[in-house]
Nucleic acid binder design. Structure first.
Length: 1187
RNA sequence: ACCGGGAUGGUGGAACUGGUAGACACGCAGGACUUAAAAUCCUGUCGCCCGAAACGGCGGUGCGGGUUCGAUUCCCGCUUCCGGUACCA
C-alpha cells in the first residue's frame, strides 16, 4: 500500500483502544516504576496551539522509551480547569463555567489524542472536579490545623501547640509566627475563645489576617504581586489599587530556608534554581536603630480622653495596632501615665458592646495614628468618642481631631457621657446603623496631613529609625540615613524649613510610575528632611535623607548610607555632596564604592579586623547596646490564598456565632461551589459567593466567601494521578509508596517562581505530617522553550516618517527600540519599545491637525515626548491582525480584512487588552500603508494618497508569544491533517533542542515528511507491494543499524531529540542506498523509531506480523561488538591546521605512528626539510605536527 | 541595574570531557524522468583566491585580547539578543 497516514492513524488508534494499551497498573506489574509528568494545561477556549505539544511530545517520547526499557511508566494528563478566563466568559455570557470548561476539555483531549500521546486517561485529574477539590480542601484544613515548629524544623499539628500553651504559655515556643508578645499558661487560660482563636491564627500555616493587597475593581479580585504589571492587571490591563482586606494566607515563609536548601539536590536547570533563590532572597545581616537627635523629635499632642486600660488590646497584641508603630509604645506609656478612672459612661458602653449587642468588633482605648480614641471598629473604620463636661470647653481641638481622623477614612461619632447612660438603646442603634452603612473593605487614604499644634498640649517623644543592613561591619562608614518616600516617620521628623521640599518630593515620588523608574534607573533623586540622627558609636550627627532608591516594602524601608562601600549610597552621596568615609581598605573610594571584603580602618574597635570578623564583632556590640540584633531577611512574603472569585475551590471554613473561623468537618467535604445568579462580585464588593442564597453550613453558619487561587490544585495534583479514584484518602499509602515522586517533569519556565515554589512547599508540608515519604515533588525538571508565533501587524493612526536632518538618529532608534519599515529613504516608524518617544513627520502632523494640535514646517522632524503632545490613547500603536489576511505577494488583503473587522468588532466588544480599543472604534481608525492612509469616510474605507505614494498596504511581521489575542495561533490539527501526526511529532522535535525558544516555522517540515515516506519505501516498493525479506543482514547493515540504536539511546537521556531524528535520517538514507529490505534490520529500526512515530511504526509492526503492540516491546540491545572499529582515519594537522588524513590500526603504537607520519610524502612536502619540534599523537583522535 | 541562557552558512540547527567546524534538514542552483506540472531521483551549495581538476592556498563559529601543540568549547574585557527579577540595603 501507499503511505496514507490518516488511514494508518485511524487503524492504529482503534487497535490501541481495543487493547487498552496505555492502561497503567501499580506495583503488581512487578516492574520498577518511572513517573513522567507534563505540567497540565489550562483548557482555554482557543484549544491547543503548536506550542503546547512541544513538551508533551518530548515527555511522550521519553515515557515510551522508558517503557521499552522495562519500566512501569506513569505518564498521565489532566486539566488545570479552574481559572479566570472561564469565569470572565461566564460573566459576559451568563453560561456556567462548568459548561465552558467541559467543552474546552473535550477539545483539548481530542487534539491530544490525535497526536498519539500515551496518556492513561483513566487517571485523568481535573482541579475543578469536586472529587478532586475535596482533597485540595482537605489539605487546606491540614494547613489550618498545623503550625511550624522552628525547633524541630517541621510543621506539627496545632494540638501540640495548644497543649504547650496550657502548660507553659508560649515562652518556650520557637515558631514561624506573627505573635510577638509572650503570655503565660494562666494568661492563655484566661483568654476568651475569640482571643484564643486570634492567637492561634498567628501560628497556623493557613491563617487570616488583614493585609495590603492589590485590588482590581474591574476584575473584582485580588491579584498576586506577580500578576500586576506596571500598576495594572497582567490579564486585561485593568487598574489595580492598594487596599486593606482580610485575607487568607499561607505561611510559606516558614519554609523559606528549606525551599532554599532543597534546591541543592535537585536535577533542575540552573536558571530555575537561581530564579527561586533570588525569589526567596535570603540575606543575613543586622537590624540597627538610629536615634533621632532630640531637637528633631516631634512634639505630639496627647489624645483627648485617652485612658489606658490595663487589659486593653494594645498591650496584649501589638499586631492589632493601627497607629504609628514606632511611636506607639511611647504614646501608650504616655497614655498610662495620664490615666484617669474610666467614666461610668465608658464602662457602660463597653459592657454593652462586649455583650455583643453590636456585631462588629470594637477595640477600646485604641491608638489611631497619633491619637488614642475611646472606641474603634477597625474593620469599618468607625470611631466612637465619649465626651465629658470638660470637653465642652475644647471644641476647636475636638473638631481638628475629628477632621484628621476623617481624612484617614474614619467616621467619628461623638456622644455625651450623660446620653450614653440615659439613651443607651438609641445610641446603640445609631452605632449599628452607621456600621451597616460602612463598607468593610476600605481604600487607603493619603497620608495624614499635619495639623497645627498647640504648645500647651505637646509632649516630646524619642523617635528612632530602624535600618536593615547586610554589612554591619561598615557601621563607622555611615554618613547619612535614607528613608523610602513612603516611610511613616517622615512627617514626624521633617523640620519646618524642609517641610515644603519634602512634601514636594514625596508627591513627586508617589507619582512616579514603575515605567518611569525603569527607564531612568541612573537618575538620582532625594531630599533632606532637615533632621539628624545620632550615630550609636561615634555620637556624630548624621543627616536623614529621603530617596526613591530605597524601597518601602523591603527590610525596614530605611537604609544606613555607607557611601564608601555601597554603590547606590555612593551615587547618592556624590550627587548630594555628602561625606564619604573609607572604613574597609582595599579599594579606591575616590573613584567608586568598594563593595568587596577587606580589612577595617577608621572604625574604632573594628580596626584591623577582616570583614567576616568585623561583622560578628559589630553585631555583638550592637546587641550589647540594645539597639539592634542579628537578623535574616527574606524577600519572599507569605502567599495570599483567598481570591474574590467564583471559579475556584471554596475555602472549607465557616464562622461560628462569635465570628471565629472553623474548619468544615472532614465528613462534610467537599464544600461544593454554590449556584449564583451572576458571577460578579456583589455591589458592596463582596465576592461572588456572597450571592449564593441559603448557603449555610449546618444550616446556620456562614461559609468563607473567597475561593482558592489558581495554584491551589496544581500544588498537589501530581499525587492524585497515583491514585485518582480514591474516595477515602487523597492518595493511598500503597500507591504513594510505589510511585513516589516525579522522576521527570516538564513544563514552561514561566512557572519558575509561582507553581514550582508552591508545589515544593505543599510537598514539604505533606512530608512533615508524615503523609508522603518524600519532601521534593520532582527529581528532574526540564523547561521546554516557547514556540513563538509570527504575528502580522499594521499601524493604526498612521505611522511616523523620520527624515533627515539626522538620519542616523532615526534609523538607530527605530532599529533598536521599535518596529519599523523603510519606504524609500524614509523610515516609517511604528512603535518605540519604551513608548517614551515617538517620531512624527510634519506631513503627518499636517494630515491630522485634530490629533496633534501643533504647527510644523513640512520636512521638519519632530522628536516628541509622546504624552506631552498627544493624549495617550491616541498614541500610534501597531495592532495584530489575523495571519490569514496576509497574502505573500500583495501584503494585506485590505477589503477582506475590513469586512472581517467590522463583523468581529460587533461580536467582540468585550475583548481584553489594548486591542479592545483598536477594535471598537474602526470608524475613527486610520490605517497606514505605503504612501498613504486608509480612512473611514461615508460608510467605507477609502484611500487617501500622500505625495507619490502607492496604495499597496504594507504589513510587517514580528515574532512573539503565540496567543489568541494576537491572532497568530497555529493549530496543530491543521498540521496533522496535512502531514500526519507522526510527521508533526518528529518535526517539532527536529526543530532544535527542546529548551530553546523558537518561532514556529513550517519551512522544514517537508524534510521530515520525505523521511517518513523513505522509511515506508523500505517496506513497500514503488508499486505498493510488501518488499520485506527474511534474508540475513550483512555486517555493514547491522553496523548502520546499531550505530543508530546507540545514538538514540544516548540522546534519550540527554533529551537531544533533534539529533536522534537526524540519526534516523542517516540510517534510513544509508539503508535505502544499500537497498536493504531485511526484516532483521527493519524490525529494530521500527523499535527505535516508535517513541517518535508511534502510528507508522505500530502499523508496520503489525504488518510484519510481530507479537503484540510495539508499545509494549523491548528496546533493542546495542551490539557493541559491531561498533568497535579496529582502525581510525587520523586527521593530520601541522601547527593545528588539518592537512591530510591517514588511516592507522587503532592498536598501533604511538611511536610507530609518529615515525610513519613523518615519513609520508604529504608531511615531508609541508615540512620542506625543516625539523618538526614535536609530534603529538592522541590515540583514536588526531595527530598534530608542531614545526 | 542584577541574575540566567544565547550569538555558528541564505535558514533551522550539529560538533562527546579542548582534537577533522558546518552533521541532518530546509532553501537555492543545475540536471534526470514527464507533453507539462507535482512527486521522485542525481549533482552542487561557508566565503575569497588559483586552477582543467585536486584529497590546492587563505580566511572563517558576535567583537578585542589571553592560555594551549591545538579553542565554537577554557579565561579576561566588550557588543547584542532572549527570558526572569525589579533599585533587596
Amino acid at each position: 500500500m501507499e503511505y496514507r497516514f490518516s488511514e494508518i492513524e485511524e487503524r492504529v488508534k482503534n487497535f490501541w483502544k481495543e487493547k487498552n494499551i496505555y492502561r497503567v497498573g501499580n506495583a503488581e506489574s512487578g516492574k520498577p516504576k518511572f513517573y513522567v509528568l507534563d505540567m497540565f494545561p489550562y483548557p482555554s477556549g482557543a484549544g491547543l496551539h503548536v506550542g503546547h505539544p512541544l513538551g508533551y511530545i518530548a515527555s511522550d517520547i521519553y515515557a515510551r522509551f522508558k517503557r521499552m526499557k522495562g519500566f512501569n511508566v506513569l505518564h498521565p494528563m489532566g486539566m488545570d480547569s479552574f481559572g479566570l478566563p472561564a469565569e470572565q466568559y461566564a460573566i459576559q455570557t451568563g453560561q456556567h463555567p462548568v459548561i465552558t470548561t467541559e467543552q474546552n476539555i473535550a477539545t483539548f483531549k481530542r487534539q491530544m489524542d490525535q497526536l498519539g500521546f500515551s496518556f492513561d486517561w483513566t487517571r485523568e485529574v481535573r482541579t475543578s472536579d469536586p472529587k478532586f477539590y475535596k482533597w485540595t480542601q482537605w489539605i487546606f484544613i491540614q494547613l489550618f490545623q498545623s503550625w511550624y515548629n522552628n525547633s524541630t524544623n517541621k510543621a506539627e499539628k496545632i494540638d501540640s501547640l495548644i497543649s504547650e500553651f496550657e502548660k507553659n504559655g508560649n515562652k518556650n515556643i520557637s515558631a514561624a509566627t506573627d505573635q510577638s508578645e509572650i503570655f503565660s499558661a494562666d494568661g492563655w487560660k484566661s483568654f476568651s475563645a475569640k482571643q484564643k482563636s486570634d492567637v492561634l491564627l498567628n501560628y497556623r500555616l493557613a491563617y487570616i489576617a488583614d493585609s495590603w493587597v492589590n485590588w482590581c475593581p474591574a476584575l473584582g479580585t485580588v491579584l498576586a504581586n506577580d500578576e500586576v504589571k506596571d500598576g495594572v492587571s497582567e490579564r486585561g490591563g485593568y487598574l489595580v489599587e492598594r487596599k486593606l482586606m482580610k485575607q487568607w494566607s499561607l505561611r510559606i515563609t516558614a519554609y523559606a530556608d528549606r525551599l532554599l536548601q532543597g534546591l541543592n539536590d535537585l536535577e533542575w536547570s540552573d536558571s530555575i534554581k537561581e530564579a527561586q533563590r533570588n525569589w526567596i532572597g535570603k540575606s543575613e545581616g543586622a537590624s540597627v536603630k538610629f536615634k533621632i537627635a532630640e531637637a528633631h523629635s516631634t512634639l505630639l499632642r496627647r489624645g483627648a480622653g485617652g485612658e489606658e486600660e490595663k487589659n486593653s488590646d494594645e498591650e496584649k497584641s501589638p499586631g492589632y495596632l493601627s497607629g504609628d508603630t514606632t511611636i506607639a509604645s511611647h504614646l501608650l506609656k504616655f497614655a498610662k501615665e495620664n490615666r484617669r478612672n474610666p467614666t461610668e459612661a465608658e464602662e457602660f458602653l463597653w459592657e454593652e458592646i462586649r455583650n455583643r449587642k453590636l456585631v462588629d468588633k470594637f477595640r477600646r482605648q485604641h491608638l489611631i495614628e497619633k491619637f488614642v480614641v475611646d472606641f474603634v471598629c477597625l474593620e469599618k473604620r468607625l470611631i466612637v468618642e465619649l465626651d465629658g463636661a470638660h470637653h465642652k470647653s475644647n471644641k476647636e481641638y475636638d473638631e481638628a481631631r475629628t477632621k484628621i481622623l476623617s481624612e484617614l477614612g474614619y467616621k467619628v461619632l461623638r456622644f455625651w457621657n450623660e446620653d450614653v447612660l440615659k439613651k443607651t438603646k438609641k445610641i446603640l442603634d445609631i452605632i449599628s446603623a452607621e456600621l451597616r452603612l460602612r463598607d468593610s473593605v476600605l481604600t487607603l487614604n493619603p497620608s495624614p496631613k499635619e495639623r497645627e499644634t498647640d504648645a500647651d498640649d505637646l509632649i516630646s517623644i524619642n523617635i528612632s529609625i530602624e535600618v536593615f543592613t547586610t554589612r554591619p561591619d561598615t557601621i563607622f562608614g555611615v554618613t547619612f540615613l535614607t528613608l523610602a518616600p513612603e516611610h511613616e516617620l517622615i512627617s514626624h521628623i521633617t523640620t519646618d524649613a524642609q517641610r515644603k521640599a519634602v512634601e514636594e518630593y514625596v508627591t513627586y515620588a508617589k507619582n512616579r510610575s514603575e515605567r518611569e523608574r525603569m527607564t531612568d534607573v541612573k537618575k538620582i533623586t532625594g531630599v533632606f528632611t532637615g533632621a539628624y540622627a545620632v550615630h550609636p558609636f561615634s555620637g556624630k550627627q548624621i543627616p536623614v535623607w529621603i530617596g526613591e532608591y530605597v524601597l518601602a516594602s523591603y527590610g525596614t524601608g530605611a537604609v544606613m548610607g555607607v557611601p564608601g562601600h555601597d554603590s547606590r549610597d555612593y551615587g547618592f552621596a556624590k550627587h548630594f555632596n555628602l561625606e564619604i568615609i573609607e572604613v574597609v581598605s582595599g579599594g579606591d573610594i575616590s573613584k567608586e564604592a568598594f563593595e568587596e571584603e577587606g580589612v577595617n580602618v577608621n572604625s574604632s574597635f573594628l580596626d584591623g579586623l577582616k570583614t567576616a570578623d568585623a561583622k560578628k564583632k559589630s553585631i555583638d556590640e550592637i546587641e550589647k547596646l540594645g539597639i539592634g540584633k542579628r537578623k535574616i531577611n527574606f524577600k519572599q512574603r507569605d502567599a495570599i490564598f483567598g481570591r474574590q472569585r467564583y471559579w475556584g475551590e471554596p475555602i472549607p471554613i465557616y464562622y461560628n456565632e462569635e465570628g471565629i473561623p472553623n474548619t468544615v468537618d472532614e465528613k462534610d467535604l467537599p464544600v461544593l461551589l454554590p449556584e449564583v445568579d451572576k458571577y460578579l462580585p456583589t455591589e458592596n464588593g463582596e465576592p461572588p459567593l456572597a450571592r449564593a442564597s441559603n448557603w449555610k453550613y449546618k444550616g446556620k453558619y456562614n461559609f468563607e466567601q473567597t475561593t482558592m487561587p489558581g495554584w491551589a490544585g496544581s500544588s498537589w495534583y501530581f499525587l492524585r494521578y497515583e491514585d485518582p479514584n480514591n474516595e477515602k484518602d487523597f492518595v493511598s499509602k500503597d500507591a504513594i509508596n510505589y510511585w513516589q515522586n516525579i522522576d521527570f517533569y516538564i513544563g514552561g519556565a514561566e512557572h519558575s517562581t509561582g507553581h514550582l515554589l508552591y508545589f515544593r512547599f505543599w510537598t514539604k508540608f505533606l512530608f512533615d505530617l508524615g503523609l508522603i515519604p518524600f519532601d521534593e515533588p520532582a527529581k528532574r525538571l526540564v523547561n521546554q522553550g516557547m514556540i513563538q508565533g509570527v504575528s502580522q501587524k499594521i499601524c493604526k493612526w498612521g505611522a511616523a516618517f523620520v527624515k533627515g536632518p539626522d538620519e542616523d538618529l532615526g534609523e538607530k532608534m527605530a532599529i533598536t527600540n521599535g518596529i519599523y519599515y523603510k519606504h524609500g529613504d524614509t523610515l516609517l516608524l511604528c512603535q518605540m519599545k519604551n513608548q517614551s518617544h515617538i517620531f512624527y513627520s510634519a506631513d503627518m502632523i499636517a494630515l491630522f491637525p485634530n490629533i496633534f494640535k501643533i504647527n510644523a514646517t513640512p520636512g521638519e522632524v519632530l522628536f516628541a515626548k509622546a504624552n506631552n503632545i498627544i493624549p495617550p490613547e491616541k498614541i500610534l500603536t501597531p495592532s495584530n491582525i489575523p495571519v490569514e489576511f496576509i497574502n505573500d505577494e500583495s501584503g494585506l488583503e485590505f477589503k477582506k480584512f475590513i469586512d472581517w473587522y467590522k463583523v468581529f468588532n460587533k461580536l467582540n466588544a468585550n475583548i481584553d487588552g489594548h486591542d479592545k480599543k483598536f477594535l471598537l472604534d474602526y470608524e475613527n481608525t486610520v490605517f497606514a500603508c505605503e504612501g498613504g492612509y486608509w480612512k473611514y469616510q461615508n460608510g467605507e474605507f477609502a484611500f487617501e494618497k500622500l505625495a507619490g505614494g502607492s496604495s499597496v498596504f504594507k504589513n510587517f511581521s514580528i515574532v512573539e508569544k503565540m496567543s489568541k489575542s494576537k491572532y497568530n495561533v497555529v493549530n496543530p490539527e491543521d498540521m496533522v491533517s496535512k502531514y500526519g501526526a507522526d510527521c508533526f511529532r518528529m518535526y517539532e522535535m527536529f526543530l532544535g533542542p527542546i529548551e530553546m525558544s523558537k518561532p514556529w516555522d513550517t519551512k522544514g517540515i517537508d524534510g521530515v515528511s520525505r523521511f517518513l515516506r523513505k522509511l515506508w519505501k523500505l517496506f513497500y516498493d514503488d508499486n505498493g507491494n510488501w518488499s520485506v525479506t527474511s534474508e540475513a543482514a550483512t555486517t555493514e547493515e547491522l553496523k548502520i543499524l546499531h550505530k543508530a540504536i546507540k545514538k538514540t539511546e544516548d540522546d534519550m537521556e540527554k533529551l537531544s531529540f533533534n539529533t536522534s531524528v537526524s540519526s534516523f535520517m542517516i540510517c534510513v538514507n544509508t539503508l535505502t542506498e544499500l537497498k536493504c529490505h531485511k526484516a532483521e534490520v527493519l524490525k529494530d529500526l521500527l523499535l527505535i523509531l516508535s517513541p517518535f512515530a508511534p502510528f507508522t511504526t505500530e502499523f508496520l509492526w503489525r504488518e510484519m506480523k510481530q507479537e503484540g503492540s510495539i508499545v509494549a516491546a523491548a528496546f533493542p540491545k546495542v551490539r557493541e561488538d559491531l561498533l568497535v572499529e579496529n582502525s581510525f582515519e587520523y586527521p593530520v594537522a601541522v601547527n593545528g591546521k588539518t592537512k591530510t588524513k591517514i588511516t592507522f590500526p587503532l592498536d598501533k603504537e604511538i611511536l610507530e605512528i609518529e615515525k610513519e607520519i613523518l615519513a609520508t610524502d604529504a608531511i615531508q612536502k609541508i615540512l620542506d626539510g625543516k625539523q618538526p619540534k614535536k609530534v603529538i599523537v592522541i590515540k583514536g583522535r588526531m595527530i598534530n605536527v608542531v614545526v
